[in-house]
Amino acid sequence: MALTKKGEFWYGTTSGDCQAELRSYSVDNGHEAVRFAASKCDCGNRTFALQTDEDAGVAIRTCTECGQDHLMGDSADHLDAAAPEAHECVCENEVFELMSGVAVHEGTHKVRWYYIGCRCVECNLVGVFADWPCEAADAATFLAKV
C-alpha cells in the first residue's frame, strides 16, 4: 500500500490507498474524515459506476456485476432535487472501487461532511470524486448505506 504521484494525480493499488488520499483531501478541505466504509453490493461485487449531484447531495452507485443501483448515504432524502451525472476517470474508464468517508461534528457522531473516494480499476488512479456538506444524524447508520 503506497500512493505514487504521476504528474498531477495520485495512484494506488488498494482500498487503503484510496482511504489515504480521501483523508489527505479532507484535511485540506478543513473537515477531516474520521470514519470510513468501502462500498460492497449485495451480490458481493466491489466495483461500480458512480453518478453524483454534489449540489443536491446525491450519490448513486451501480454494480458492474448485477446492475443494481444503490443510493448512497442519505441520498434517498434528496433525490427529488437531483440531476446526477456519471463520473469518468482521466483514462476514460467508468468503473471504480468506492470508499466513503465522513467528518463528524466535534463530540458527536453526527455527519458534517461526506466524501466519496474512487480507485479506477483500469489505471489505479485514486481521488475524491465528490464531496458535500451533510447533516445526517448518525455516522454509523449513514456509512452502512454506502
Rank of each mutant, 00 (worst) to 15 (best):
residue 65 E to P: 01
residue 25 Y to P: 10
residue 128 V to G: 12
residue 123 C to M: 03
residue 54 E to V: 12
residue 38 A to T: 12
residue 91 C to P: 11
residue 55 D to Y: 08
residue 94 E to K: 15
residue 34 V to I: 09
residue 92 E to D: 05
residue 98 L to Y: 04
residue 83 A to V: 15
residue 145 K to F: 05
residue 25 Y to S: 12
residue 67 G to V: 04
residue 40 K to G: 03
residue 21 E to S: 06
residue 141 T to L: 11
residue 103 A to L: 05
residue 108 T to D: 09
residue 42 D to W: 01
residue 20 A to Y: 01
residue 78 H to Y: 15
residue 37 A to N: 08
residue 30 G to R: 01
residue 132 W to V: 05
residue 145 K to G: 10
residue 144 A to Y: 06
residue 131 D to F: 06
residue 110 K to R: 14
residue 49 A to C: 08
residue 35 R to Q: 13
residue 63 C to S: 10
residue 31 H to I: 00
residue 77 D to G: 09
residue 1 M to N: 13
residue 59 A to H: 01
residue 132 W to Y: 15
residue 132 W to P: 11
residue 53 D to N: 04
residue 112 R to K: 11
residue 70 H to M: 13
residue 81 A to K: 15
residue 89 C to V: 09
residue 49 A to D: 12
residue 44 G to E: 02
residue 72 M to C: 15
residue 37 A to H: 05
residue 35 R to D: 13
residue 126 V to K: 01
residue 95 V to M: 06
residue 123 C to Y: 08
residue 64 T to F: 12
residue 146 V to Y: 10
residue 51 Q to L: 11
residue 35 R to N: 09
residue 8 E to S: 10
residue 134 C to R: 07
residue 65 E to L: 15
residue 50 L to A: 14
residue 113 W to V: 12
residue 4 T to E: 10
residue 30 G to E: 04
residue 1 M to K: 07
residue 102 V to D: 11
residue 12 G to Y: 03
residue 122 E to K: 13
residue 124 N to G: 05
residue 57 G to R: 13
residue 104 V to G: 01
residue 16 G to V: 01
residue 59 A to K: 09
residue 59 A to R: 06
residue 101 G to Y: 08
residue 117 G to Q: 02
residue 127 G to I: 04
residue 9 F to E: 10
residue 110 K to S: 14
residue 135 E to L: 13
residue 131 D to Y: 11
residue 123 C to A: 05
residue 68 Q to S: 15
residue 67 G to H: 11
residue 29 N to A: 15
residue 100 S to F: 12
residue 33 A to W: 11
residue 48 F to T: 04
residue 38 A to P: 00
residue 13 T to F: 14
residue 111 V to L: 05
residue 137 A to K: 12
residue 103 A to Y: 03
residue 97 E to P: 00
residue 34 V to F: 02
residue 83 A to H: 11
residue 68 Q to C: 06
residue 142 F to N: 00
residue 68 Q to L: 11
residue 77 D to E: 15
residue 65 E to S: 14
residue 121 V to F: 05
residue 129 F to A: 12
residue 58 V to N: 02
residue 12 G to W: 01
residue 13 T to E: 13
residue 61 R to C: 03
residue 126 V to E: 01
residue 62 T to G: 09
residue 58 V to K: 10
residue 139 A to V: 07
residue 144 A to M: 04
residue 23 R to F: 08
residue 104 V to M: 10
residue 45 N to G: 14
residue 35 R to H: 13
residue 16 G to Q: 08
residue 1 M to V: 09
residue 91 C to K: 09
residue 105 H to S: 00
residue 139 A to G: 01
residue 77 D to A: 15
residue 107 G to H: 03
residue 119 R to M: 08
residue 25 Y to M: 08
residue 144 A to P: 07
residue 91 C to G: 03
residue 97 E to M: 07
residue 120 C to R: 03
residue 24 S to L: 01
residue 9 F to M: 10
residue 79 L to F: 04
residue 45 N to Y: 04
